[in-house]
Design a protein around this nucleic acid. Structure first.
Lengths: 345, 345
DNA sequence: AGAGTCCGTGCAACCGATTGCGCGAGGAGA
DNA sequence: TCTCCTCGCGCAATCGGTTGCACGGACTCT
């Protein structure tokens, strides 16, 4: 009856690789469509048949062929996470959270890095696009129109950036910066410099705006040093300008820059925080390894990564284009790089 | 003639998503097979036709459907990199190198983390296996038989571990450890303790063996502290035992443990390196942020990641199962955490 | 006991690319 | 000028699942 319904391509038995649903069907004595339904649509099949199918599938070591499944359905069960720089400690949390959420939903996560340019990021998005169901953008170089265009052809979610029409997960910098400003004011600082990050960074603008607002409200004098690379080197490079300025406290765009500045300052004999206070953002691994440890504004990046994937998955479901979640909170972590200014000459 | 050869499923024009080779074929006035050949098998088609096909493909914005391509060929153009822990700074280099090599070969890289256990790693490998052409294992928990079994069903390459019958990329610890031992001897140390990592780690055994050999050859007394987690906490936790021992110099399994030990020692008033020298492995980000900076044995992990993917790609090519490359070199980076012992009471 | 429902399952047509085979046209050689 | 070979291209089967439709049997209701 169900015998020789379909001969394997190469004739014999366990020829080329894994068993298919046709093999399972033959052994279980049912049709391939029944196998398909039993395995991926619980309830559509009688319990007895379903059990029989599942058992023989397990016994044969059947593993579904994702490509074959994706062809008719269009769903690859894969998500992409686009990063500007894998080695940037900031992204660890995001990566881990995203990984966890994806795995929990039985999705596979592709992590793609595109270090160089906006063009490279676009190219990467285009390259991985066809093989994934959606993309989480944790990049900073892509401009809004490109992002909107990419989001139109494929479900997308942004982390650390807001773009009209694209769901995103952004931090509530306000809270953390407010606490930082209070902290600096209590320590007696008046002139506070902001060491800006890349000018293309949305996060950078958010941080500066928040600092400007909070600083003015607190009666501090705040001013901005022109943007640099968000790296140790970027922080180091800013030292001369910082030293020449009236600032007694520096808020760096991120911890990497803060550490870079700290080290260069120390090499020039500046004592932190006695002569100069330094604070950063992100609370990366390394911020509490320095001497002094770095005061920083932290965000729950791991949660953010997890939520970003969750949001993306919601958009993939037919029904649920859930509203974007509220900004995730940030908070101040007080460490040793900020302190009261020692009265010198 | 080539008109209405095949009607799109839903009737009209740009219905559901991207154009297919059928659309390209219709517009270009050729058959789908010609389009396929023109796009993926240069030279099999006349230059004129090829150009025409490529042009219309570009004009229509055709992007090949990876699932559809993978179905008949079995090649997904995707590779997986299995990691034990993404947040471990050691893996950055590997990830970045692997990413670069994969992208250069037009492959997509899936990065999967499986933190918990050998079982979780196996499950992860099984989960991503069907959707990739090969796997790079940078894990440590999986036992050799499992690895061999997994390698049998799917091309695999190991990093930082050697298993019979599976191609691998391993460091040449010897060189770096020899230099480290020389360094410690010159500084006058005699009793050297090794702070072991996880007992399941192949790398850990390599490092201890090399230290034991080099130490004995140099006339030092070396001994091992039982293994711990390869983390800051693992290093901290070892402090009591270290303090109780005769060791004046500690070689930790990795920098993370070295830093953990360093900080806890300092909290107990121990001055490094005056009272105790500490060295690690891997030269992670953070090793030169501490005070003192950490002396460490480094390896070109980024190259290793790149070569691992290269090796895997070679195994995918029909012809070339290239021989495993020689171990990659390690070297000593002298910093401030090692020094001459101050004569105390 | 006869008619109407519903449930479980099989049939067959897809999804979009690849590829062995064969046919026709054009060029080379006699 | 006629035959043979080569090259370029189309035909159609195939990869391994999914899914709309239809059919047969068991069950319920009257």
């Amino acid at each position: 009856m169900s015998d020789a319904v379909r001969e394997p391509a190469a004739g014999g038995g366990a020829t080329s690789g894994s068993p298919t649903i046709y093999d399972v069907a033959r052994v279980a004595g049912v049709s391939p469509s029944t196998v398909s339904r039993a395995l991926s649509r619980p309830g559509r099949i009688s319990a007895a048949t379903e059990r029989k199918v599942r058992d023989t599938a397990a016994q044969l070591g059947f593993r579904i062929n994702p490509s074959a499944r994706a062809l008719p359905t269009g769903r690859t069960m894969t998500l992409a996470l686009l990063l500007a720089d894998i080695t940037n400690p900031v992204v660890f949390g995001i990566v881990r959270g995203a990984e966890r959420a994806a795995a929990a939903a039985r999705y596979t996560l592709v992590i793609a890095e595109s270090q160089e340019s906006a063009a490279a990021e676009r190219a990467t998005a285009l390259r991985v696009g066809p093989s994934v169901d959606g993309i989480v953008f944790a990049t900073r170089r892509l401009d809004s129109p490109s992002l909107q265009e990419l989001a139109r052809s494929k479900p997308a979610v942004l982390i650390n950036r807001a773009v009209e029409g694209v769901p995103s997960l952004v931090p509530d910098v306000e809270t953390g910066v407010l606490a930082l400003v209070e902290h600096l004011k209590e320590l007696g600082h008046v002139n506070v410099g902001y060491l800006a990050g890349p000018s293309s960074s949305w996060v950078d603008r958010q941080r500066w705006d928040a600092l400007l607002r909070a600083g003015r409200a607190a009666g501090l004098r705040v001013f901005e040093f022109p943007g640099g690379e968000p790296t140790l080197e970027g922080g180091s490079a800013a030292y001369e300008r910082v030293a020449a300025s009236p600032a007694t406290a520096i808020v760096a765009f991120n911890d990497l820059m803060a550490i870079g500045l700290l080290r260069t300052a120390q090499q020039h004999g500046v004592v932190v925080p006695d002569d100069l206070s330094i604070a950063g953002f992100d609370d990366i691994f390394g911020s509490e390894l320095t001497t002094p440890t770095i005061t920083t504004v932290a965000a729950p990046l791991e949660d953010a990564g997890e939520q970003a994937v969750g949001l993306l998955l919601d958009h993939l479901e037919p029904g649920g284009a859930r509203e974007a979640p509220p900004p995730f909170p940030t908070s101040l972590i007080r460490r040793r790089s900020t302190g009261r200014l020692l009265a010198t000459g």
